[in-house]
Design a binder for these strands. Structure first.
Length: 849
DNA sequence: AGGGTTTTTT
């Protein structure tokens, strides 16, 4: 009997190990007949995997590290540390060469053979451009030895040793490869940025390292809080690398009383001019508005040979490119935080740091994203200062005093402490990672954020009352969009408007393709009016989409782009919108959904679209209170964003794709809704109460009023309802008292007339029973009818006849009051009282006991 | 009546 050979993991491709172990185990268990053929094929697979390792080992590209880069000074220490430790922290400033050289050093340390060396970057552009550079340095075409993968773009081959990607890609890969077996080494770059992705990834790796002793992890960071990373990974060694920066002198310019930001910048510019009148200046400001204000003041002061350029992420691409094409004179770049991490402005000699930034903070109680302007941390300020030491010695002028700097927090609060965590918690559930409160985050998020995430998942019906993932939740986790938006898609599929909502969800995920340049705001607004639909910004988005599809169909790419630009719409973002739509449509197809075609507008369709969107936005609705002010969840107040098609109309009820608090709380991208939709779709969230029960003599039943609320918003103020189904016991008591005892019932039937006889008959009965010669008083009668007086049996023919005389639907309506009367112990729900009870009226008996 | 930091995804 041939036994399958044992598995030697070290000699096999890591991605094959798990599968081969499983196959071997199955082979050993098999006792049926001849397994030699199966063993042979198993041996073949082992051999193939081992051959692959040998081949990769042989073909390993030679690497040389650039000796001019500061990191090369620690070359040997790093290679050695990688060999000796499972986790290594490399700390170094920009320009040290760590992003490009570390993967090569890992290769030199023998990594990259049994699996890829995976290198993550926070941004797609960086992943691609670093990959290109390293491929060049290794004299290998991009995609061969060195590949990359970002959303919409992948160039990795089976022969790749190094793969650059965004950290989001690794997170997505975990779903299909829980142990990340395709990698034998992971380099997490820019870990100091502490994005949600990075913190989640670090926590995941922390757990994975024990299960994958062969996996090596390298964490790289600016020299910010490296001790924390080291402690987190069980005192992993930290290797510090020099940056290639020049010294930066820091000056503090204390603001005068009543000197606004623009004047402070103006004064700092004057100071820089005195030091070097030709050195380019980068000014860090908190937002677009400040950029505009400062720009106006600087332009007014007509500085010689000076160009003032704005720079922020939403700026049209053409204007952004101006940063990279050097002008003739001096340049002053007025920038937001894009220039701190995402974009490098070349040739900067001075940095002027306002010390301010807009920081996003998620307000859990109101579900509003706040963007307050706040003082930045010391680390962020130092990062900003570093931006002027790239080409020569620089000077940083801080618009606050040194004591204030010292009093500021050392590090920026990590995103996981400030963001909504729905996506993170959903992901953890889908991956079976247990209670998020127990997950090893490097700095665990506050409980209130985790709780809010649970609530939102409940609101979306992604988890049940026991916090288990529902089927819907499982689907949500597979759609690569925000959970609220995923919920919209699921609803849209059921309502037959998937194509439209796919377009909208894609559109909501990208940045608004409509551009509004500072100097052409009115013209832009006018052009955009073409895509305005009264009552719904979403239908407006669809109008823009349709316009673009038609425009593109009829002409060349160039001509279409030109048409878009003429309407102040960015062709690049339209393109991205199309890509995203195509990707989501593909995911939808794989999920087994029918997308169908974009259909012409009609009212029913518009309602189906809006109701689908609403499924994801139940907590982001508002009711108009007065004067354009809306009241939202839990009493939170907001207004409609002025750019919305709804801003003037102010419909009574709206839903908003985003609630953002900037200068004040705004609802952005909104549509009018009907409160009735909420009552139908938010059944799991609405609270309803009934009050003021009263006897309805004409109707012959107990009525009451209902109030319906959602997150404290009143959907229905006072609606008359049949009281019975809500409070059966109380209704029954009232029915007895009014209908039977007092006979307060308007009906032609004989019941009322006979009621006196009924009372008498009862009284006689009572008399016999109690041996007392009195008529029963009202309370005794109630007790009797309620069945609380035992041993009393009475046939109520009159009652039965009256009932018979009613129309069938009337009988049905009265079912609650009357049937509970007949069965005092019966509970609330209608279906507990079969129709038979009504059909058998002749034999109705009031019984007790 | 009046306007937003940044990034990412089987």
């Amino acid at each position: 009997m041939t036994e399958p050979s044992p598995i030697k993991p070290d000699e096999l491709m890591q991605r094959d190990v798990g599968r081969l172990i499983g196959q071997r185990r199955r082979l050993l268990k098999r006792s049926d007949g001849d397994i030699s053929a199966a063993v042979a094929s198993f041996e073949q697979r082992i051999a193939a995997s081992a051959d692959r390792v040998q081949q990769r080992l042989r073909d390993r590209p030679a690497v040389t590290c650039d000796p001019d880069l500061p990191i090369s000074a620690r070359h040997e220490d790093i290679v050695e540390a990688i060999r000796d430790h499972q986790v290594v922290i490399v700390a170094g400033e920009t320009g040290s060469g760590k992003s490009t050289q570390l993967p090569k050093m890992a290769l030199e340390a023998g990594r990259g053979v049994r699996g890829l060396i995976g290198c993550t970057q926070p941004r797609r552009i960086a992943a691609r451009s670093v990959a290109r550079r390293v491929a060049e340095e290794m004299n290998s075409p991009l995609g061969e030895h060195v590949g990359f993968q970002v959303r919409f773009n992948e160039r990795v081959s089976d022969d790749s040793y190094i793969k650059f990607m965004t950290d989001g890609i690794v997170l997505a890969e975990i779903h299909s490869d829980r142990r990340l077996n395709r990698y034998d080494t992971l380099i997490i770059d820019e870990a100091h940025e502490r994005s949600l992705n990075i913190d989640f990834l670090l926590g995941y790796l922390k757990q994975l390292l024990a299960k994958r002793p062969d996996l090596k992890v390298i964490i790289t960071s600016a020299t910010i809080d490296t001790g924390r990373f080291s402690r987190f990974f069980d005192d992993a060694p930290v290797i510090k690398v020099e940056g290639r920066g020049y010294p930066v002198a820091v000056e503090y310019q204390v603001p005068d009383d009543s000197e606004d930001l623009a004047r402070q910048v103006q004064r700092a510019v004057a100071r820089a001019t005195r030091i070097d009148a030709r050195g380019d200046i980068l000014v860090f400001l908190p937002g677009e508005r400040e950029i505009f204000q400062v720009s106006r003041v600087l332009k007014k002061s007509a500085l010689a040979h000076t160009e003032v350029l704005p720079l922020y992420a939403r700026l049209p691409a053409a204007s952004q490119d101006a940063i990279f094409s050097p002008g003739r004179g001096r340049r002053i770049v007025l920038a937001t935080n894009v220039a701190e991490t995402s974009l490098t402005v070349p040739g900067i000699r001075f940095v002027i740091d306002s010390g301010l930034a807009r920081i996003s903070r998620y307000a859990t109680h109101s579900k509003v994203l706040r963007l307050p302007v706040e003082p930045v941390s010391q680390a962020a300020s130092n990062q900003r200062a570093g931006r002027c030491g790239r080409v020569g010695p620089g000077t940083c002028i801080r618009l606050f005093n040194e004591a204030e700097f010292d009093s500021r927090p050392e590090f920026t609060e990590p995103e996981i402490h400030r963001s909504g965590l729905v996506g993170v918690v959903l992901e953890m559930l889908a991956l079976g990672l247990g209670d998020p409160a127990d997950f090893p985050f490097i700095e665990p998020p506050p409980a209130r954020l985790i709780n809010e995430a649970w609530n939102t998942l409940g609101e979306l019906q992604a988890v049940d009352a026991e916090r288990r993932l529902t089927a819907l939740g499982r689907t949500l986790a597979t759609i690569p969009v925000d959970a609220r938006q995923g919920r919209m898609l699921i609803e849209a599929e059921q309502r037959g408007v998937l194509t439209e909502v796919l377009i909208l969800v894609a559109g909501l995920s990208i940045s608004d393709p409509r551009e509004r340049p500072l100097e052409h705001q009115q013209a832009a607004d006018q052009a955009h009016a073409e895509f305005r639909v009264a009552g719904s910004d979403f239908l407006g988005m669809l109008a823009l989409w349709r316009w673009w599809q038609q425009t593109r169909a009829g002409q060349s790419r160039n001509q279409a782009d030109k048409q878009a630009r003429a309407r102040f719409v960015s062709p690049m973002r339209l393109h991205e919108w199309g890509q995203l739509y195509a990707q989501l449509r593909e995911v939808a197809r794989e999920t087994g959904w029918q997308a169908g075609n974009l259909r012409p507008d009609d009212e029913a369709r518009a309602e189906a679209i809006h109701r689908s969107l609403l499924a994801g936005l139940l907590a982001q609705v508002g009711q108009h209170v007065e004067d354009g002010e809306y009241s939202g969840a839990r009493g939170h107040k907001f207004r409609i964003f002025p750019g919305s098609a709804l801003a003037r109309a102010r419909p009574g009820w709206i839903m908003a794709a985003e609630l953002v608090e900037t200068s004040r709380p705004f609802a952005r991208v909104a549509a009018a809704i009907q409160p009735g939709w909420l009552e139908q779709q938010a059944t799991h969230l609405i609270r309803s109460s009934v009050f003021d029960p009263h006897w309805d003599r004409r109707g012959g039943r107990v009525m009451g009023y209902q109030r319906v609320t959602l997150f404290g918003l009143t959907l229905v103020e006072k609606r008359q309802v049949h009281y019975g189904p809500h409070e059966p016991r109380e209704a029954r008591e009232m029915f007895i008292r009014h209908a039977l005892v007092r006979a307060e019932m308007n009906h032609r039937a004989a019941f009322l007339k006979r009621n006196e006889a009924l009372k008498r008959e009862l009284a006689v009965h009572e008399h016999k029973r109690r041996q007392r010669d009195i008529l029963a008083d009202e309370d005794t009668l109630v007790e009797f009818f309620a069945g609380r007086l035992p041993e009393t049996i009475f046939t109520v023919k009159a009652f039965a006849r009256w009932y018979e005389s009613l129309a069938a639907d009337r009988q049905q309506e009265l079912l609650y009051d009357h049937a509970t009367l007949l069965r005092p112990d019966a509970q609330t729900s209608g279906e507990e009282f079969p129709d038979r009870l009504i059909a058998d009226t002749e034999s109705f008996r009031l019984t007790s006991g």
